[in-house]
């Protein structure tokens, strides 16, 4: 079994998956921040570090495209889920679903 993804890695990979062809750094950052509900709680540093890490693991691939005047002409890096990334996400989902099966929710908590 492959290494299980961390929660934040799953969130970033799902953002890339959902953005499809528009998955470049800023879009992923906005998507992750809006998903968290509180944009201040998630920093750019954490998102970019995770993008770099999952790319190094081979779960994402990236390509560079030309910049626009709105970003001072600086180039953009677009991300795409690799087959290994899709497998890792699928395994993470399957593991969670298996763990949730048969669990009573909300739990009965004794005082």
């Amino acid at each position: 079994m492959a290494e299980l993804l961390g929660t934040f890695e799953q969130i970033v990979l799902l953002a890339v998956l959902g953005l499809e062809e528009e998955a470049y750094g800023r879009a992923v950052l906005r998507d992750v921040q809006s998903a968290s509900g509180d944009s201040r709680s998630i920093s750019a540093g954490a998102v970019y570090a995770t993008l770099d890490r999952v790319e190094a693991k081979g779960l994402l691939s990236s390509r560079i495209e030309e910049g626009t005047p709105a970003r001072g002409g600086r180039v953009r890096r677009f991300y795409r889920l690799t087959p290994a990334g899709a497998v890792a996400l699928s395994e993470a989902r399957k593991t969670l679903e298996t763990m949730w099966q048969g669990k009573r929710w909300p739990p009965e908590v004794s005082a």
Binding site: R26, L29, G67, A70, R74, V75, R77
Partner: peptide
């Protein structure tokens, strides 16, 4: 590796949003 791409992303977010 990230200098141009990440600074460009934050520049864009700063200016546009």
């Amino acid at each position: 590796r990230d200098r141009e791409t990440v600074s460009g992303d934050l520049y864009e977010e700063f200016v546009e949003a």
